[in-house]
């Protein structure tokens, strides 16, 4: 199969394939260059960026769980001014569209971040992070209330003219209501799901393992929850859904696409296998060829009743 069988357009962003490097797992896109060409991605979403530099959470920041990983990085990043001055100019080297994940502590911080990134040519779009479980202010505290999500996305929408993606959490018990609110406010696409808050206790020390006590769960352990979330949200909204949660191989990506994802994001799997985007692209092409499809978009939502 030719490469064109995987071409995608999400929120107006033209991508060579529907694979997206998930925010927080790929730095600014440069760290894996010795292992794999970043241009093999459909798009890269860079590390969550805040208005001011953030130190992040005290270590330990990671603990492994059965088929999963809890992390509590706490949005360590050098801030938007540093990003615009030093990182922005290097992004074209990556060879694929780059989105910036923005996280604020207040509605106004989200608006200011969006305004600062508006019209920045090197940035293909924004992913609005209203679902980080590891920060005290902002993050998930915004993401659970549909009215607040509507207000927040409206303000970002007014400040930013380019493609706007909103990243949702399953912690919002009403993820469909939150998704509808984000869409009404002008989101061009939705990405889901962010990690889910969890904890591991060290029984010898009788204390939580993580410096932040809690962390966000990622990896294969999360996958069935994420597939279900994509299934529900993609039927409720008309904008494309970027599905993520424990995708390790082509078969996992196919589950998300068949559930209704127009694209899929890959995070934790990069830590295990840096060649994962290339392997999943190859696997998707094989599946298309073996099953008589000509383009992956024919598979989107195909598992739904009546499809």
């Amino acid at each position: 199969m030719s490469d064109s069988c995987l071409s995608a357009t999400i929120a107006g962003i033209t991508m060579a394939n529907p694979l997206v490097a998930a925010s927080g797992c790929y730095g600014y896109g440069f760290d894996y260059r010795h292992c794999i060409d970043p241009a093999c991605w459909g798009a890269i979403v860079v590390k969550g960026t805040t208005l001011h530099p953030r130190l992040g959470n005290p270590p330990p920041r990671l603990v492994e769980t059965p088929s999963g990983l809890l992390n509590a990085i706490g949005l360590q990043n050098p801030g938007i001014a540093y990003f615009l001055k030093y990182i922005r100019v290097r992004l074209p080297e990556l060879g694929c569209p780059v989105l910036v994940n923005i996280a604020g502590e207040t509605l106004d911080e989200y608006r200011r971040l969006a305004a600062l990134l508006n019209g920045v040519d090197e940035v293909a779009g924004l992913e609005v992070n209203i679902s980080c479980p590891n920060v005290k202010k902002g993050g998930i505290s915004f993401g659970c209330d549909p009215a607040l999500v509507y207000e927040l996305v409206c303000r970002v929408r007014e400040a930013y003219r380019g493609p706007l993606i909103v990243k949702l959490s399953l912690e919002a018990g009403n993820i469909v209501s939150v998704a509808e609110a984000a869409t009404r406010a002008g989101a061009d696409a939705l990405s889901l799901i962010n990690t889910i808050k969890g904890m591991v206790i060290d029984v010898q020390k009788r204390r939580p393992v993580l410096g932040n006590s809690t962390g966000g769960l990622s990896g294969p352990a999360l996958r069935p929850l994420a597939v279900r979330a994509v299934w529900e949200v993609s039927q409720a909204v008309s904008v494309p859904v970027i599905g993520m949660g424990g995708i390790m191989q082509a078969e996992d990506a196919l589950q998300f696409i068949l559930a209704g994802s127009a694209a899929v994001a890959i995070g934790t799997a990069n830590f295990v296998n840096p060649a994962v985007p290339k392997e999943i692209c190859d696997g998707l092409k094989r599946y298309l060829a073996d099953n008589g499809f000509t383009h992956y978009r024919e598979l989107i939502g195909l598992a739904r009743p009546g499809s």
Partner: peptide, 17 residues
């Protein structure tokens, strides 16, 4: 020594103060 996820500098999981 630290538990690491990426080991290439991307994830910021292995930091020390």
């Amino acid at each position: 020594e630290s538990l690491m996820a990426c080991a290439v500098g991307a994830c910021l999981g292995c930091v020390f103060p």
